[in-house]
Design a binder for these strands. Structure first.
Lengths: 317, 317
DNA sequence: ATTACTTATGCTCACTGTTAGCATAATTAG
DNA sequence: CTAATTATGCTAACAGTGAGCATAAGTAAT
C-alpha cells in the first residue's frame, strides 16, 4: 500500500454526520452552571452545516441564536467518534465539543432547556465545604474493592491501586481538582457509573452518587470542567463569567465555584491586584453584612494583552 | 426555532468527509523531526473509516501500518473545518489532527515520505544558538511595518504593536517558546507567509524565511509544536523520543531540540534526578570527548505513575 | 451608645522551587 | 604533560506561594 499514506478520496459510504456539542458555563450566585436540554439529561448539540465558515463559527451561530446572548470565550474541547456513537440510520456521528463561557444566565426560548449546577453530575468534585462525605462513604470503598479485584485486571491490582490513589487524593492537600476527567474515567472503568452499564450488561457494583447524562455527555462535561479548571489558573477567563462590576470576594467565589475548592482570601487579593487586571470603579457595596467592599471592574485595555499572555493563579493546595 | 437546540438529524447533503492528519515527531541526532509526504510539502493524512473503533484507533492503525513502528504517545490536537477546506467534489472536509511521538526514525515504505527537521518550516523558532538573525533582519522589520500600517487595521495599531511585542519577545528572556501558533498566525495575518497569499491575491510584503506547506498543514504543525513544547515541561513524554539508554546530556538535548532553547545543565540534571524518572544502567559512554557519562534508562514502574501525574520541568527563561 | 459579629484589607514570615554560578572530576587529543 | 572537553557536586540569591496575625469598617441586637 505505497500510496495509502497520501491524501485520499473518501467513498461516499464513509461519510459521516458531524454535530457540535456545547458545554456552556456560567456562574450565578456563586454556583457553576451548565446549559442542558432534555430535562437536564443532555448537552445542547447542533448541526454543523456547510454554510458555516468554520466549526467555531457554526457553534457561535446556533448558540447565540438560541440564547440571544453573546458567547464570550469559546474553546474547542475534543472530537469524539467512538463506535457506539451512531445515529438512527447507523451512520457514524462525529462530535466536536466546545467549551463556552457566558456572562450570566440568558433567558431561554425552550422549556426543556435550562441551567444546572454542574456538581449535580459530579458531586464528588465539590470540595468547597471540605471533602464530600460520599467519598469516604461510597466511592472510595467501591474503588478499593475494584482495585483489589484481580479477576478482570490486566496489569495487576497494584497499578490500579496506584491510579486510584493518584486520581482520588485522600485529603485536601493531595486532591488535584484538574483530574475531573481521569476520575470519571476511573469510575466508568470500575463500572460505578450508570453509563458503563449500558455496554456490559451485568456488573455487580454499587452505583456512585451523581446524575448521569445521555450518550457520553457526562464525559464531555468532565472534559470541559477539567479544561476550565486548568485554564482559569493561568488565563484571565473568569472575567467572562462575571458581571460588569463585582467585589473581590465575588470574583474569588467564582474561582472557587469552578475550582471546587477554597482559596486563601488574602493571597487571592494579592494575586489579583498584582496582575492589575482589575481597577476600582470608585463605588462600594452597601447593605451587606460586614465592612463594605470596593467594587471593581476589569481593565479592558489590559485584558487584550493578558488574553494572550495569561496569568497564573495560585489555587490553595 | 424552538427545537433547533435539540439533537438534530442531518440531511445527507450536509455530510462531510473526515480525514485524520498526523504530526509524527521524533528526535534524531539532537534534531526534532516531523514525518512529511509529497516532497516534504504536506503532513501524512489518512481516512477515517467506519471500521475504526475510534478516531485515535483509526490513526494508530494506518500510521503503524505505514511506518511499521509502534506509536508511543498519541494525543488529539485540534479539529479543523474551515471553509476553504474542501475536496475535489466540493465536499467539506473535516480534519482531525493528532500529535504522535515515536522513538526513532522508522524505515519508510514510500519514497515521497520522509523525516524533516521541523525548523525547516519554522526557522525563527530555533533559539538554541541564540536569537535567529532573521528575526532582526527580516521578520521584525516586516512586522513593525505591518503594525504601523493602519490602512487595514480595525482595532488600531497600538493593539497590533502590543501583540507583536508579546508574541515575538525581543530577547532571550521574554521569548516564550510555547507561542509557536500565535506567532505563525500573526505572520499569516500580516501576509508574511505564502499561505496567506493564496487567499488575498496581492499583498505587497516581503516574505519571511521558512518553507510553506500545502493547505493549512503548517498551521497544524505549529499547533503540534506548541502543544509538545508545553507538554514536555510537565509530562514525562520525552521518554517516547529516546532510545532505551542514554546519557543525561542526550536527554537534555532532546528537550532542547523540542523547546528550541537551551537549558542550564546542572539544573536539568538536578531536576531529572529528583523526579526519579530514570535509573543508571551501570554502563558508561566510551570514546567520547571529555569525561565519560553514565548511561540511564527510564524507570518503567515509575513511568506509569508519572504518566498520570506529570512532572514540571524548569526551562531556562 | 455598646457589644458581638461579619466582611474587608494590610502586612509579614517561613518555605519551596528556580536561576545562575563556582568548583571539581574524569576523560581524550596533541 | 597540557589543553580541551564533558560530567557532576554544591550553594548563594531570589521569586513566588501558603498561612496566619492584626486592623478597619460596616450591620444587628442589646
Amino acid at each position: 500500500m505505497p500510496d495509502s499514506i497520501a491524501r485520499h478520496v473518501a467513498s461516499p459510504v464513509d461519510s459521516v454526520e458531524t454535530e457540535l456539542v456545547a458545554v456552556l458555563v456560567s456562574v450565578t450566585q456563586g454556583q457553576p452552571r451548565v446549559l442542558t436540554r432534555d430535562c437536564s439529561q443532555a448537552l445542547p448539540a447542533g448541526p454543523f452545516e456547510s454554510s458555516h465558515r468554520s466549526l467555531q463559527a457554526g457553534l457561535r451561530a446556533w448558540v447565540e441564536t438560541q440564547t440571544h446572548h453573546p458567547l464570550g470565550y469559546v474553546e474547542q474541547l475534543y472530537t469524539f467518534a467512538d463506535r457506539d456513537r451512531a445515529n438512527l440510520q447507523g451512520q457514524r456521528i462525529i462530535s466536536v465539543s466546545y467549551l463556552g463561557l457566558t456572562r450570566e444566565s440568558p433567558k431561554l426560548d425552550d422549556e426543556s432547556v435550562g441551567w444546572q449546577d454542574w456538581y449535580r453530575y459530579f458531586p464528588w468534585e465539590d470540595w468547597r465545604e471540605g471533602m464530600p462525605a460520599m467519598l469516604n462513604d461510597t466511592i472510595m470503598p467501591a474503588l478499593q474493592a475494584w482495585s483489589c479485584d484481580t479477576s478482570d485486571a490486566i496489569g495487576g491490582d497494584r497499578q490500579r491501586r496506584q491510579r486510584v490513589e493518584y486520581t482520588f487524593g485522600q485529603d485536601e492537600s493531595s486532591w488535584n481538582e484538574e483530574l475531573v476527567l481521569q476520575r470519571y474515567e476511573l469510575l466508568f472503568e470500575a463500572g460505578l457509573v450508570p453509563e458503563a452499564k449500558r455496554r456490559e450488561s451485568a456488573l455487580p457494583a454499587p452505583l456512585v452518587p451523581g446524575e448521569a447524562m445521555q450518550h457520553d455527555h457526562r464525559r464531555i462535561l468532565a472534559t470541559a470542567m477539567a479544561r476550565l479548571r486548568a485554564k482559569i489558573r493561568y488565563r484571565p477567563v473568569v472575567f467572562e463569567l462575571m458581571p460588569p462590576s463585582f467585589t473581590l470576594l465575588q470574583l474569588q467565589q467564582a474561582f472557587e465555584a469552578v475550582a471546587g475548592r477554597n482559596l486563601h482570601k488574602q493571597n487571592f487579593r494579592r494575586f489579583i491586584e498584582q496582575q492589575t487586571l482589575v481597577e476600582e470603579t470608585g463605588q462600594m457595596t452597601r447593605g451587606t453584612a460586614g465592612r463594605p467592599a470596593k467594587l471593581f471592574q476589569f481593565r479592558g485595555d489590559i485584558m487584550q494583552e493578558r488574553a494572550i499572555a495569561g496569568s497564573k493563579l495560585p489555587l490553595a493546595r
